[in-house]
Design a protein around this nucleic acid. Sequence first.
DNA 1: GGAACATGCATCGGT
DNA 2: CCGATGCATGTTCCC
Length: 738
Amino acid sequence: MKGSELHGEDRHQGVENEGNPAIGFDAMEEEQGVPVEDKEIWLERGQEDLLQVSDVSIFYEDFPPLPDFPCMSSASSSSSTPAPVKAITSSLSSSCSSSASSSSSAASWAVLKSGAEEDVEKNHQHGNHYYHHNNIDDYNSRAMEDPVEVTTAALSSTCSMEVPQPLDQAMEGVECMDVMEDFGYIDLLESNDFFDPSSIFHPDEGLFEEFQMEQNKPQDHPQLQYDQQAGNEEITKSKNDHEADHQGGRSDDLAMVFLDWLKSNKETVSADDLRRVKLKKTTIECAARRLGGGKEGMKQLLKLILQWVQTNHLQRRRLRESSSNGNLPYPYNQDPLQNQNPNTNSNINCIPIPANNHSNPCFTQSPWNVAPPPYLAADPATVMPGFSPMVCDPFSNGASNINGHPYGTPQDYMLQSYQTWPPSQFDLASHFNSFADNNLHSAQPQNPAFTGYGNQYPYQYVPANDDNRLARLGSSATKEARKKRMARQRRFLSHHRNQNHHNIQHQNQGAGDPHERLANDPIGAPPGGQSNPGSWVYLPTAAGGGSASTTVDALVDRPAMQAQNNYHRQPAAERRQGWKPEKNLRFLLQKVLKQSDVGSLGRIVLPKKEAETHLPELEARDGISIAMEDIGTSRVWNMRYRFWPNNKSRMYLLENTGDFVRTNGLQEGDFIVIYSDVKCGKYMIRGVKVRQPAGPKPESKRAGKSRRNNSHANCPAAANNGSGSSSTTMITQTRTVK
DNA sequence: GGAACATGCATCGGT
DNA sequence: CCGATGCATGTTCCC
């Protein structure tokens, strides 16, 4: 039974804080054993801050890697989650300080590892895996099957391929070492962190030596020369591990694959090419899983990456050649883009990992035998944040149950990323979204590998068979394309600076994340800069839904939108408070309160679909006791979640809501929002008061009965515009009564 | 027609 | 008697 432990009968309504007096996010982080500093950054850093962090930060700010796709899944979200990517600064520090063999729980970065290291890495991965699950288990068994819960890992599977600082080393004998360095290097940084390019190549870390050891078979590969440094503990360890692997009957397939590839490409692929490959550990894990899992999955992934490197190199060489012809006044290692912004998108390439090599036609064939997917062959200067390897969402039930990612969910991160995408990439986001949407209804069932548990967060890896997009990307290697990209980048940089002042407009392009969009939306903020967590709601009053193109889209009754991912339904009121639910909370459902909900009955009818999707499954009609922490007051209400048989169906109710409603002064037309804390799995509720300063009050009966307007009771604004005739959007300050 | 939801209303139990 | 509980029914909309 999902979340059964959350609903202990011994809880009492109105118990203050339930032993968690200060249910602050930081406090919760500490409970989780998660480094607080990271979380603080994650939770509190604004984009402005990120912009000031460092070049690397700027890089990511400009072209944030897309959130990882939850696979097996969200999160969201977008999530989701959502465990979104951690703050850049955090990643920088951790990446710099972490060594490849570090086993710190805080270190979860991973670079593709050679076969020799794979097992060691597997241990790390498992460790991480257990780490997450243990956390989940610790808090809520339900989380185990909650896609979003795992999002912490899945979402962070941001894949980025690095174009590091140019190395003078050519592809001499050391090339192989460099290769090893790359592929034998498993950085264990925070799984959600971005890598720090400067931290990658530390010859004294003995990391690539590990791979050397793995590959140290001169008789077989005389062309490979290694530094035979002795006494390196890492080497010894690696060797031992390697031997152990062999003894254990585990083949070093990865190493052999890599060696084969090296032999085939040693003359055409440089160390630089290989150095550019860097993947997050979680990305690798998820990608490998998507590719079949286990060693085979890792091997497939390695092949994919090598193929990418190869293709990438060829393209670069073509560019170099054209450069040497006088077309480009800069040498290969001084890519103008890099010079211009050494840490921006030109430094990143995201390898989209096929979600499922069985389901994705692009990956049904061995990467060895097929032309590399165009997006894999992208010019290093081609930023493809949209293709960040959202390879998997272990919780892939789909909804970041967003969700919403929300959001915060896995989906949350994903959506969050949208905001900072260059305009040219919104189409990707949009595409991505639509794909996810489609999958919500169709692809998931047929593609279990994509989604996992319940597919509540169906956003997936963008299908690789988008001809248009592929064509667009495939042309990126051309000089013209590069020029365009540069111009686009400039525009985006400029655009980004003004982003906070134009969030609404910006947000309405493509499928930007309403969560993040609203986070910085000055309009949405309470007047006077009030940071009170009270509920403010932004009311669209457009009649007939004619004003779809406003920030309140998330509130406008659009069944199609609602049918999408849950994170799209993150109440604007929440987003507009500066409060960032996407960091810890996953939006579950919301309900516009009807008269019967706020009356003396003390029960609120919950939308059936959402209830069944996001709340614990009910075996008995008596339901379960469920503690709902009031987000605004931290007060915990012990409610009962149950259902009534209704015809052949069920009607889901939240009971014991009378005091909550009264305390919050909720009235008909107001709404409640229910979240789950992605960290500890507890449920949180917020009452949002909706008040229209002018205009007709909601026609209680009529508006309430309009399915159109209520759209499964998930569209708060809709309930208030049922009779509205104004086409203007008004901002209404409301506040949750505490 | 059926699903989902709002709510009417019958019933029950406590005071 | 009154509030709580739970079922039934009406309304609306989607398929």
